[in-house]
Design a protein around this nucleic acid. Structure first.
Lengths: 121, 121
DNA sequence: ATATTGTGCATACACAACATACACAATTTA
DNA sequence: TAAATTGTGTATGTTGTGTATGCACAATAT
């Protein structure tokens, strides 16, 4: 499991987990049917509580990205490439809409935003 | 006072206040020396507690955007246009760095981000 | 049976938001 | 000019929500 969490981040730990696992699934890095590590093992590895991992996995389940089976494990759901691209853009767009409303409130134009973006991306 | 807050937003009320007032100051909409409404009046108008307003005003004070004088009021600090522009870009850039790390985690390239941005801005 | 997996529950802690009472400054007024 | 009044920000204590936790329970596999 290739995940790194930061305790000092302003984002909750479970949220960091959700975002990173979601991204890996939607980039195709975790193939369909792949079994995520058991929550105890993940918790041990990440030095967090079992509950925190479970909360993240629960959210991934709600999003339809994984299927959880009691006693067996949590498995990456089955998607076509097109579906993955669609869901990925959907998630990014949703976030981007919130981000841009912040930029707009400071009176930035589209060109100004793009200019700044090119500097730091 | 031209501020709108949303109780359903995921952002805390005091944070919404900070962002909106900051933006108005740095856009020059509130000129230097302008006296913000007394916290009681603001609280009444926004239907929130005095403390919530105070918390926001406190943060603006820490950022150096306003000067608070007990018994008198809170006044917009004095800036040159250049300074305002610098601070504004500084705040936006800080936010943007966090935003882009999210886009990057999904494997989006700069061009893809710009493309999506053009659609929704 | 036993080990491995996910699940449910009670709790500790941090923070947002609140109502209320307090302290300081300016103004009024006697 | 001193006391009272009004207007301002400040400090205290309480309540509710959400993050993160440990431990005991249920379901499954071998």
């Amino acid at each position: 499991m290739n995940v790194s969490i930061s305790s000092t981040s302003e984002k909750p730990i479970y949220q960091q987990l959700i975002e990173q696992i979601s991204a890996q699934i939607l980039k195709g890095e975790l193939e369909s049917g792949y079994c995520l590590p058991p929550i105890r093992q993940a918790a041990l590895e990440l030095r967090v509580s079992v509950i925190t991992v479970k909360k993240a996995w629960e959210e991934l389940e709600r999003s339809g990205l994984i299927n959880t089976v009691t006693g067996k494990g949590c498995f990456v759901a089955d998607f076509s490439s097109d579906e993955m691209l669609r869901i990925r853009n959907e998630m990014v767009l949703k976030q981007m809409e919130s981000d841009t409303s912040y930029y707009k409130s400071f009176g930035l134009t589209l060109d100004e935003v793009i200019e700044l973006l090119k500097k730091i991306y």
